[in-house]
Each structure stands twice: as C-alpha cells, then as structure tokens.
C-alpha cells in the first residue's frame, strides 16, 4: 500500500506529533519502506483464522467493588507541569 506525504502528515497530526516540513519527505520514505517490508504479511493465508485475543489462556482476576485507592492528590499532582488549587492546569480548551 503506497504511502504518501499527505497521509504521513495526516497520521502525524492524528498522533499529535509535530513533524517539521523539511523532514516530511524523508520520513515518508522511511515509513514507506517499512510498510513495504511489512506487506509480505499479505502472502499468508489467514482465511478462517481467529485473531489472537489473548496470549495465554488464563482467567483474569476481577476486582471486587471496594474503594481501595484514590485520596492521594499530592501523588497524582506532584509531577504536573502546572497546577492550581488542586487542579491540573492545561492550555485553554476552546469549546
């Protein structure tokens, strides 16, 4: 599947990763090569193969409905780039 510059720019935006204009061509080439190499997967016949949904056949533990965590605001906020009055501060979100 061919990968073009515009697609890479769109994907980068979707992933919220700034890619400088001058790097876009180089990156497109790199990603295109990787995808071309990956495309060999299409050779494998996977008709009627169920996708892997779990690596090991285990029954997961489920949580009981008990409050065991939270109430640790300082731990939650201590790495925040900006905080104010018990809140995280983030750039203005325009609604």
């Amino acid at each position: 599947m061919a990968l073009d510059r515009e697609t890479v720019a769109r994907i980068a935006r979707l992933a919220r990763i700034a890619v400088p204009e001058e790097e876009l061509d180089g990156l497109t080439g790199e990603l295109a090569r990787i995808l071309e190499w990956i495309d060999q997967l299409q050779e494998v016949d996977t008709e009627e193969v169920e996708p892997m949904r779990r690596v090991m056949d285990i029954t997961p533990h489920l949580r009981a409905d008990e409050v065991t965590d939270g109430d640790c605001r300082e731990a939650i906020l201590k790495n925040a780039p900006k905080r104010f009055d018990g809140y995280f501060v983030v750039p203005k979100v325009v609604e």
Partner: peptide, 30 residues
C-alpha cells in the same frame, strides 16, 4: 519512537485496520 508511533497509528487507522492490525493478529495466531 516517533517512527513507531506513526506506523502504529497508521496500522490502526480507518481503512487500514483489517489489512494491518487484524491481519497481523491472525498471522500471530498461526
């Protein structure tokens, strides 16, 4: 890391999910 995030984003994006991610999970099963 940026490269892999972009590859992964692409593999999951609309229109490519079946061809890449789903396909890969099926080959993984094999």
């Amino acid at each position: 890391v940026r490269r892999r995030i972009l590859i992964g984003t692409y593999a999951l994006s609309a229109g490519y999910y079946d061809a890449y991610y789903l396909k890969a999970q099926k080959v993984r099963r094999k």
